[in-house]
Design a protein around this nucleic acid. Sequence first.
DNA 1: GATATTCCTATTTATTCAATAGGTTTATAG
DNA 2: CTATAAACCTATTGAATAAATAGGAATATC
Lengths: 143, 143
Amino acid sequence: MMISTKGRYALRVMVDLAEHDREDFVPLKEIARRQEISEKYLESILKGLVKNGLLRGLRGKGGGYKLTRPPEKYTVREILALTEDSLAPVACLEEGAAKCPREAVCRTVGLWRGLYEVINRYLGSVTLAELMRTGDPGDNYVI
Amino acid sequence: MMISTKGRYALRVMVDLAEHDREDFVPLKEIARRQEISEKYLESILKGLVKNGLLRGLRGKGGGYKLTRPPEKYTVREILALTEDSLAPVACLEEGAAKCPREAVCRTVGLWRGLYEVINRYLGSVTLAELMRTGDPGDNYVI
DNA sequence: GATATTCCTATTTATTCAATAGGTTTATAG
DNA sequence: CTATAAACCTATTGAATAAATAGGAATATC
């Protein structure tokens, strides 16, 4: 399995924030409740997204989190790339990996590059906006 | 990272066997030496491929392994599916996973299904034959 | 000044991955 | 027949990573 809870949770939070976008900041406690994820764990995940400018965080009473761009300006790829250690399908393609001494004779590295490419293309083609529900209240059901 | 050493090694072995196909059986020791992988570890990996009919194994002196089909009849997907626990990009899509109670409201499960589909299609489109070197010596370059 | 929030660092726990170890069975060669 | 070379089988260990928790420090609002 490829995408850890960190990445999956991060994406869910981003969609949640996109759907609950408003003037004031949305406190993590609210997101955690809706998404049924531990507050403390979410904290550690959101830190990176704030540091990289995908979210703005505001401390103190009335604080919380907020998207810094409209939802259609975020690709899933960007969010996961910041959250996961790597999106590479195999260790030898990870950034900072030691150069494989077999690379020149390896019959499979080309396949892995191709797979990486396919994954990146797909994740780069989907935006947050596409993962949101529309504002249509009839669409806002809960099971 | 998604594909473990088991899957990567298995694929390398299958390509190796495709390239060294001959009348008699190829002993694991020989493959392990060429691929620089521990014999014992390879054993445990090949077991599953034999059990599922992708390889034939012959015991005793003069024994070894052998492909059961021509290389173009194996897809990479098939080999990895037998070797990896799962090719699903997220836990909730793994076979036998507990049904997620949030599935009906989950905004992201569709994305993961799409990713899984893209991965399966790609891996299913490449065969062992395409990973082999041809017999053409001119093709036998090193980068 | 009380409170609600993000931010920060460290630690623990659980799970999975990777590999090793040691033996059993089976086929061939001499 | 016997020695040998091989696959086959089961269990265990060790290392790395993932997942989560804990406790507090800083900051903004009311």
